[in-house]
């Protein structure tokens, strides 16, 4: 099955599991996670008392997507994540941030994009949220585009939901260590 298979992206929907179709063989099986960064195994949402989360709030401008990628790299290096996980994370989060830059706010109306990165159990969670117009069909494109299907293919779990009074929130989870490929 293609990783861009016929999955529908709807607000509030959670995608799980079949992202393995785009997994590259992993060569890292012994990544040692830094103990100091892994004190947080609780999964309660919205808690501010997490042991090692990073919050970034940036103007939703194209050049700031690179800042997010850079910070993701720092986080991933500190956690000694496998290269394949880092690549998937970078690509998925880049897509999510690019969506915010392109679609969340009206032209010339600056708004924030917030990125929360935190370990949750055996996954790494990245939440990208904005205060913009929310998810809706884009008049600027003729189809659904590759962004969301690509993100869904790269993540272990993807949840899309409205964020507070305005805007949208993409909650992406990545397995810290990828399952071994069947022989």
């Amino acid at each position: 099955m293609s990783c861009f298979g016929p999955r529908r992206q709807t607000v509030g929907q959670v995608f799980r599991g079949d992202s393995r179709a785009v997994r590259r063989p992993t060569s890292v099986g012994t990544a040692t996670l830094v103990t100091a960064l892994n004190q947080d195994d609780s999964a309660d949402e919205g808690s501010d008392s997490r042991a090692s989360d990073v919050r970034l709030t940036l103007p939703a401008r194209p050049e700031n997507v690179a800042v997010v990628r850079h910070v993701l790299g720092a986080f991933a290096e500190a956690l000694l994540l496998p290269d394949t996980v880092i690549e998937d994370m970078r690509l998925a989060v880049t897509e999510a941030c690019t969506n915010v830059v392109r679609h969340a706010y009206a032209d010339g109306e600056p708004g924030p994009v917030e990125i929360l990165i935190r370990p949750v159990g055996d996954t790494l969670q990245v939440i990208v949220s904005d205060e913009g117009r929310g998810l809706r069909p884009s008049a600027a494109s003729s189809g659904p585009g590759l962004g969301l299907p690509l993100i869904a293919a790269l993540t272990h779990e993807l949840e899309i939901e409205p964020a507070g009074n305005a805007g949208s929130r993409l909650r992406m989870s990545f397995l810290r260590e990828q399952p071994l490929e069947p022989a």
Binding site: V34, A36, L37, R50, A51, S52, D53, V54, R55, L56, T57, L58, P59, R61, N64, V67, A74, F75, A78, P110, G111, P112
Partner: peptide, 13 residues
């Protein structure tokens, strides 16, 4: 423009 903010739990990150 909204400012850039970084908020990190005090620690190695």
């Amino acid at each position: 423009e909204p400012p850039t903010r970084v908020s990190v739990v005090a620690g190695p990150l």
